[in-house]
Simulated assay, not measured.
Amino acid sequence: MIEKLVTSGTFSLDGGTWDVDNNVWIIGDSTEVIVIDAAHDAEAIAAAIGDRTVKAIACTHAHNDHIDAAPALARLTGAPILLHPADLELWRMTHPDTAPDGDLSDGQVLTVAGADLTVVHTPGHAPGAICLHGPELGAVFSGDTLFQGGPGATGRSFSDFPTIITSIEKRLLTLPADTIVHTGHGVSTTIGGEAPHLLDWITRGH
């Protein structure tokens, strides 16, 4: 099962603050789940989970809008918070007194309800940005690395456009074309749907 919950709040970085809607992804079955990106509203996420066991709260990156509810959700569910260590500096901007419980590393496999989610390190939007690829689900959870229409934003601190393009080219466009891309904001897309204009970008060196 793949469930999507949309929560609303703000994203703040480099002195600016913007209103945002975030996708919270809940993957599992009737007994256990993994939560991808605990955004804004821990109680709403906990209500969507119900009495199911939360095996992990996986963070695709540590921008505040993707992690602001993570410690509260961890307290409500007893689940560990997992983050790529390259994003610890960003994490501390939001939660200076709380650390993640464990690391996410490239190639690591998280298993829930018989399905494997493989961690794919995709820096660029943030140094520790990761995607989670579920081959049995025919899906990749891309955080803010890839959206319908192109890559995630790279105009702020800790981000780099050539790096995100390399991550997408080497780590995501190699997935099957029919892989569904479940994004951190907005609507889902597919690898095949995004590949043509991304490859054009890469070919032109942009």
Rank of each mutant, 00 (worst) to 15 (best):
R75V: 09
L82Y: 08
T60F: 03
I36P: 01
P80D: 01
N64S: 14
L83D: 03
G78N: 03
E32W: 04
R52K: 03
I45M: 12
A42S: 15
E43R: 05
L90D: 15
A72Y: 09
A44Y: 10
D29F: 10
K55V: 01
G28E: 03
I34K: 09
A46G: 09
H61W: 06
D68Y: 00
E89R: 00
A69S: 07
A74T: 03
L76I: 09
L76N: 05
A69E: 15
A86Q: 12
R75G: 02
D87I: 08
I34F: 03
A56R: 11
L73C: 05
A39S: 15
H63K: 10
G28N: 08
G28F: 05
L88E: 15
A44R: 10
I49A: 05
A72S: 12
H40I: 10
I34R: 10
A47W: 07
T77N: 04
A42P: 05
H63P: 09
N64Y: 07
A70W: 07
I57T: 04
E32Y: 09
A47M: 13
A56Q: 04
S30Q: 14
D41L: 00
A56D: 01
A42R: 08
H66L: 03
T60I: 12
D68T: 00
S30D: 15
A42L: 12
D37L: 03
A44K: 14
A86K: 13
C59L: 10
G78H: 04
I34V: 09
T77D: 14
I49V: 11
L73G: 04
S30G: 15
A79L: 05
V54R: 01
L90R: 05
D87N: 14
A74Y: 02
A72N: 04
V35G: 01
A62T: 10
V33R: 11
R75P: 00
I81L: 12
I34S: 09
A70D: 08
H40R: 04
E32L: 07
A39D: 15
T53K: 05
A86N: 14
R52M: 13
I81Q: 08
P85G: 10
L76C: 04
D68P: 00
H84P: 15
P85A: 10
G78W: 00
G78D: 13
A44T: 14
I81S: 08
T53M: 07
I49M: 03
P85E: 09
I34H: 11
P71M: 13
H84N: 10
H84L: 03
